[in-house]
Design a protein around this nucleic acid. Structure first.
Lengths: 366, 366
DNA sequence: GTGAAAGCGCTAACAT
DNA sequence: ATGTTAGCGCTTTCAC
């Protein structure tokens, strides 16, 4: 280190002849490669980036030098010079949800080829945390920002609007998107579920979701949209919404459904259908019913959302609302790639990946 | 941009007087802040990094300028200068496994406070992919590398050994760790499961896991270790291992258990116990048994590994081998922080977080 | 407590 | 096809 610095002072950039031994124990730089290969740093840079302007013979010499030294380029330095970091920021509520993990999967697959790296953060459904994470990510200069949609803190929205990179909201279709959006209507998902249950003759329909924290910060906004849709559809049919229960904190899981079942049953013993904000909670409902010797679907129909694999395996298999999250990830990646290649007009894209009710055995007609 | 570059040529570093309007539409840099606050860039840098050598009054002026401009520091530039990127690389088989997601969670929580960002990659259980991901991550100059343990490609191991940052293998305890390790013995987990089933009087004991790909690249090595332990314990008790079935490709899930159950049953109709390499597969076994009107545990005992939440909810609840993956993540974070602060001797740490059998209702004594 | 100089390891732009 | 120059936006070092 010492040796290099002082030699820099005296020598032209590409003629530094600091002996290799002086660099022992240091990571080799592009200059070490260039000296070993007897070319300029630019040539090495071109080889690294596969720029096709290098004679095959030269290229091979360089590659040999790279291999010999075990050289690994430093992308932080490259980013600084090229003003392209190769980072895409992804902010998700949680990773412990296979559907969100599937989104990350779909994104990574497509982005890897274009040599982008995902910078993943998760908020645990807290808007405060979203803002904190966003600030943190911005310092890494992502070339695009992908985050779950619709609701953000004021300051976070301002940051997103102000930053000069594409912003994509996913997993919902906000009425007022910040910019681009790839998702589906959670509200319509809720309505579809209610309609499905009503059409099948259920009279005492309940629903379960998480509650928001007292300070309103921790909240599953997309789940809440589904509940809103569910309630609106109930009202549209002149039904009561008093069996729509919000309980516990997001994210919901199996235990949520198990805990909420007796509450609902106590509130309305004639309960004949339940919609859960997530399959995981719905599975919990089914399991609790098994324990209570309550027949699903004969005595109680159960419906979920998200089409998680466990729903296909339980008995009876779970009727649910399906959204293709992997496709959502891939579609987002495609949009991202268009945006980043500058091929698309800057006109905001709003992409609906749709949803559909999957009929399985946990709901029966009455 | 143009304006800035040319002015640079003529002016001393901190006396650049490029008008602010020339910078419109550009992200503000530290220099913009310094000019607005009427201080040098160094002072701004000190404020940003909370270096406590700045007069409160100065600090406030700087902070005001930062807020006015909406300045966000560029960590790529900072990394280059300070030679500290603040990145920790994490390579996992998959994110779609709540236990691995829990590790990522545990790690993030602790590392965020120290201002480190996790760079997450996943391999889908492919060693080739592990190597590719590793190369990719290395270019981001992580200050430490965390990856699932024990088996790596030669080239990957060489890269890990050669790189000058701490390497921590997790989720297993390799016989020959590359450096540090935080995990548990998958082999002992398998033995413990076999012992548990044998002690409870089972006579026809089966086990199910994934098979390795034909080219041997895609394989769940830690799961395979559990199977090895399971088989060894069976042999130790003079039992046959012919009901240890390897089927399908990692990662296993619910469907795996469902698919494998009839195969096992056909091979040995008197089958009275099954150990699955993962709770997810074990749950699939239980569900398939329900469909076949095979009583668990009366006719067949089922045991899993990993203590996933679903195992606590199914009926009967799943007996399993528990490992605290969140603690594993936190313990890893603690080691990481020690290592990175230089507090610890460079002596490799091998940390066993242990495991234990959780008795629930899916296994009965015969 | 603050500032100037030098340079981190790379690439854009412009030679040749 | 390859090389030279001049930074990218920060921080280190050392001076005052």
């Amino acid at each position: 280190m010492r040796a290099r610095r002082s030699s820099h002072r005296k020598l032209a950039a590409d003629h530094d002849d600091t002996p290799l031994r002086a660099r022992l124990g240091q990571r080799p730089t592009i200059r070490d490669v260039s000296r070993l290969a007897g070319v300029s740093r630019m040539t090495v840079s071109r080889v690294i980036r596969d720029l096709d302007l290098v004679l095959p013979a030269t290229r091979e010499r360089v590659n040999k030098a790279i291999a010999n030294l075990g050289y690994v380029p430093d992308r932080a330095a490259g980013s600084l010079a090229s003003r392209r970091t190769g980072f895409i920021a992804l902010i998700l509520p949680t990773l412990t949800n296979t559907n969100f993990a599937a989104v990350a999967h779909g994104l990574t697959e497509s982005l890897r080829q274009a040599d982008y790296d995902l910078l993943i953060a998760y908020t645990e459904y807290s808007l405060e945390e979203e803002e904190r994470q966003l600030k943190n990510l911005l310092a890494r200069r992502p070339e695009a920002i992908v985050l779950t949609g619709a609701v953000h803190r004021r300051a976070a929205a301002r940051l997103l609007l102000a930053c000069d990179v594409p912003v994509i909201e996913i997993a919902d279709l906000p009425r007022h998107p910040l910019e681009h959006a790839v998702g589906f209507s959670n509200y319509q998902a809720g309505r579809a579920a209610a309609r499905y249950l009503i059409e099948r003759g259920h009279r005492h329909i309940g629903a379960v979701a998480s509650a928001s924290a007292s300070d309103g910060d921790v909240i599953d906004h997309r789940g809440e949209e589904r509940m809103r849709g569910f309630e609106d559809e109930l009202r549209l049919h002149g039904r009561s919404t008093e069996l729509v229960l919000r309980h516990g904190r997001a994210p919901v899981s199996y235990e949520h459904g198990a805990a909420v079942t007796p509450i609902l049953l106590q509130r309305e013993p004639r309960l004949d259908a339940v919609f859960a904000v997530s399959d995981l909670s719905a599975v919990g409902v089914v399991m609790e019913c098994q324990r209570r010797r309550l027949q699903v679907p004969e005595q109680l129909s159960v419906m979920g959302f998200g089409d998680f694999e466990i729903g296909t395996q339980i008995n009876p298999a779970l009727t649910t609302v399906h959204v293709d999250f992997r496709a959502l990830g891939q579609r987002t990646a495609r949009l991202l790639l268009e945006l980043l290649s500058g091929a698309t007009s800057p006109r905001p894209s709003i992409i609906d990946v749709g949803l559909r009710v999957i009929e399985r055995a946990s709901v029966m007609s009455r």
